[in-house]
Design a binder for these strands. Structure first.
Lengths: 356, 356
DNA sequence: CTGAAAGCGCTTACAG
DNA sequence: CTGAAAGCGCTTACAG
């Protein structure tokens, strides 16, 4: 035959018949808090076990209007920051007895194409990471009562909930750190130009430098992509005014930039060039790189994300909520050190200037 | 109120009323290949658009007994190989109009705990990567008519479908490569001891060396984990009989091993020590590492996985199928080169001894 | 091609 | 605490 037949599973009616009770009794046995005598319950459980019964979540969803599924949209996973987030999300959602429907591997940074798919499953919530949703669709979600959280990104109108870290303060902290370390010339390898993280990090950095009397920052753009970052690094290091301090908008690019610097240009780090990255992701900690980097607290960001979702699902109130968390500048070997301001925390060096 | 109300979506009945047709007509409009006049279809589509109707996939699943959801179980994502796989899976499943329910972030390497959850959603198929399922549960899937594919792993009894590469041949190739490069002493940093990949890679390597007259291989175990690999490297490099050629069971560990070698022991690579890894994953290609590594063709592995699943879903025949693909030894800078056998392919160096 | 009707496997008032 | 019954939003024979 052409269309395969998945053997139908055991149903609550079959269990009811086997146990000699009503189908409602079976349902109640598997509904936490439902009114059922322990005698009936025991009988049902025994029959269920014997028949290999498992409640059909699909049927339950249809009637409760709750799928217990959260859609996670993550366009790409090359930057290890995102797999880290995904793993934490898996854990956090499982703890709430929710499930994770993943949309990944499409090239657009726009989620609209996957939106139809995701809505058809009547997901209870949507998490958008490394991607964005048009405002019409965001509005449609609000109308449908489906909470949406932007992860590590905000939109201009603030109409959608978001979880981010203080990117602007992060950029400023890096400016302080460079200047405290005695650097005089400054560069920036930018991420995606229309992303809020890039905009904020760059702004904080440039403003911070300006406040300290440095008005010139040479900029190339790496678009948060490895090949683009390599190209940007080649341009940056070929310039006559090559800076001695370089902030790279995330660690994913910083790794590529360091490789180009050392192996293509013979630049010594940190003797000839100081590099600071962002995210504090895995490879930043590897000895070969040892990147001084602003951290983003993935675990707490995920907790905040899931919290917003759970609150809004429970209350039915979809009001945009913005959680902004703090990061720290973890000091390693990729940048020259300032004379003061470095403190130890949990065995790691972080930069905490007094005024902070 | 305590329990939030997700506004019910637009239903096919509402669209039918609006369009002045039967609910069946609406359903047929959204069922590819259903018998419907283009006139009715147009009317329905117009009303659907106006009302913002989207078919409810949950209701459809209930009646078709097909969820169009594939469960992917991936215990952890630190090793970039797995995010790569996930991204390809996202693409490949979307192309078949299937969706990906991800289970990740649990510490066990055993999938049994998530199995109940996954069965409740009546998934149409299951992909297990970096994790395994007890044979009882595998059998239960077969009974229920749900295809399961082990990704990058096999079980002893071969009862479950799998997609792997020729790990044993890979180990043997690495042995050939080392010996051709003039190495005389050999080591191995093992992965998880009960995993099929580790067993096969190790066996091929040890047998290959033996066939060439080298009977001694010093072994430490890194369990495919970064900290364990670092510890294993420290033990390995502290040995009096430290080998000059070291096969590390995957690149994820090889990166850690190289960092320990260079920065803790001052070992020069490849002058003092040759290292070869496995997977040919991102960091292997980064200049700082440049790991010579056996590749696993992720894209083709994913295609094979999805193909098996789609075939078995369509036919309803759950017969274990084993796809075994070839990898190549990509030659970079982490190991001393043999005088012959290195050829170019697509601008990359690979090792292809004549007899192969 | 079309519509009325049955039914997928559950949850949940309702009445007892 | 329990059961009979309605109904969630669809698909799909069936009859016309």
């Amino acid at each position: 035959m052409d269309i395969g037949v998945k053997k139908p599973g055991v149903t609550s009616s079959q269990v009811a018949e086997h146990a000699g009770v009503s189908q409602s009794a079976v349902s109640r046995t598997f509904t936490p808090g439902a009114s059922i005598s322990s005698k009936t319950r025991t009988k049902v459980l025994a029959s269920a076990k014997q028949l290999g019964y498992r409640p059909n979540a699909i049927a339950r969803s249809l009637i409760t209007n709750r799928s217990r599924i959260i859609a996670v949209v993550m366009a790409y996973l090359e930057n290890l920051f995102y797999p880290d987030v995904l793993e934490e999300l898996g854990r956090a959602l499982a703890a709430e007895n929710y499930h994770l429907l993943l949309f990944t591997g499409f090239m657009d940074r726009d989620s609209d194409p996957v939106f139809d798919q995701l809505m058809q499953y009547r997901v209870d919530g949507i998490i958008l990471a490394s991607t964005s949703l048009s405002s019409e669709l965001s509005e449609e979600c609000a109308t449908a009562g489906i909470p949406v959280v932007l992860f590590n990104r905000t939109t201009e109108r603030d109409a959608v909930s978001s979880v981010t870290t203080r990117n602007k303060e992060g950029g400023r902290r890096i400016a302080d750190f460079f200047v405290a370390g005695g650097h005089k010339t400054f560069g920036y390898i930018a991420g995606l130009e229309n992303s809020s993280t890039n905009r904020d990090r760059q702004q904080g950095y440039v403003e911070g430098l300006a406040a300290l009397g440095f008005d010139t920052v040479v900029i190339e753009t790496g678009n948060y992509s490895r090949p683009d970052a390599e190209a940007a690094a080649r341009k940056m290091f070929s310039r006559a005014d090559r800076p001695e301090a370089l902030f790279v908008a995330n660690d994913h690019m910083a790794v590529a930039v360091m490789d180009v610097a050392r192996h293509e240009f013979g630049i010594r780090i940190p003797e000839d060039l100081s590099i600071v990255g962002y995210d504090d992701v895995g490879p930043a900690k590897w000895t070969s790189y040892g990147i001084t980097s602003m951290s983003q607290p993935v675990k707490r960001m995920v907790e905040a994300t899931v919290e917003i979702l759970m609150d809004q699902i429970a209350s039915g109130e979809i009001e945009a909520e913005h959680r902004i968390l703090n990061g720290d500048l973890f000091v390693r070997t990729s940048a020259r050190l300032p004379a003061a301001g470095i403190v130890m925390r949990d065995g790691q060096q972080i930069y905490r200037p007094k005024e902070a």
